[in-house]
Amino acid sequence: MENEKSREVWLRGPLPEIPLLLQPAAHALLQSKEEVFKYTEGFNEALLWEKPAGRANVAFHLQHITGVLDRMLTYAECKSLAEIQFEYLRKEGVENRDVKIANLKKAFAEKVEEALLIFKNTSEAALTEKRTVGRKKLPSSVIGLYFHAAEHSQRHIGQMLVTISVLENKNW
């Protein structure tokens, strides 16, 4: 019999207390969380800030998925970004050898858990409420913001995997 943990998150069944319409976003975020830990297991921290072919480094991807998730959750609450969020955004990918991969992974895992708690407390009726994004107040909705956070994290996990593979010459 196949181990349930070996299946992708979306094939493990519904997540308790998560509204039906948010199940795909929750599954994608949990998949991202698992893959962050899987793909960075044993990663050589000395390579964290390396940019193969001038592309984004592993640190950027880890910082960025956490930052985007945080920003999308803020917009979904109909709030503007705080200065601390702008400061975080400015530092995404900026080399800082004091930053450790364990801390980046922990920060993302915690932000995913925060998102799931928010999802649990979001009514399906609220999902179509209009929201705006950024200083330009671009149009979106609660569900649009949640789904963007989820798919965006998946995209960066894929890019991070390729970066790690190139840096460590791994064949996944």
Results as ranks from 00 to 15, higher is better:
6 S>P: 00
8 E>D: 06
8 E>S: 07
9 V>W: 00
12 R>Q: 15
12 R>D: 02
13 G>F: 07
17 E>G: 01
17 E>S: 13
21 L>Y: 05
27 H>W: 15
27 H>A: 10
28 A>N: 10
30 L>D: 09
32 S>C: 14
38 K>D: 12
38 K>P: 02
39 Y>I: 05
39 Y>C: 04
42 G>S: 04
43 F>P: 02
45 E>R: 07
47 L>T: 00
48 L>E: 02
49 W>P: 03
49 W>H: 10
49 W>N: 04
51 K>I: 00
54 G>F: 08
54 G>C: 11
55 R>H: 11
58 V>L: 02
58 V>E: 00
59 A>L: 06
60 F>E: 07
63 Q>P: 03
75 Y>G: 02
80 S>H: 13
81 L>S: 05
82 A>Q: 15
86 F>H: 15
92 E>T: 00
93 G>T: 07
93 G>H: 02
95 E>C: 05
96 N>I: 01
96 N>D: 15
97 R>P: 03
98 D>V: 02
98 D>R: 15
100 K>C: 03
100 K>P: 04
102 A>H: 10
102 A>S: 15
104 L>N: 07
106 K>E: 15
107 A>H: 04
108 F>H: 12
112 V>A: 09
112 V>T: 14
113 E>P: 01
118 I>H: 11
119 F>H: 09
119 F>T: 07
120 K>G: 05
121 N>A: 09
121 N>F: 05
121 N>V: 01
128 T>Y: 10
128 T>A: 14
129 E>P: 01
130 K>E: 15
130 K>H: 13
132 T>R: 05
134 G>Y: 05
136 K>W: 07
137 K>I: 01
138 L>G: 00
139 P>A: 09
139 P>N: 07
140 S>R: 11
140 S>V: 02
141 S>D: 14
144 G>Q: 09
146 Y>W: 14
148 H>D: 02
148 H>E: 04
152 H>G: 01
152 H>K: 14
153 S>M: 08
157 I>L: 05
157 I>F: 03
160 M>H: 08
160 M>F: 06
162 V>A: 12
162 V>Y: 10
162 V>L: 12
163 T>Y: 01
164 I>P: 09
164 I>F: 06
164 I>H: 00
167 L>M: 12
168 E>M: 14
168 E>N: 03
168 E>D: 08
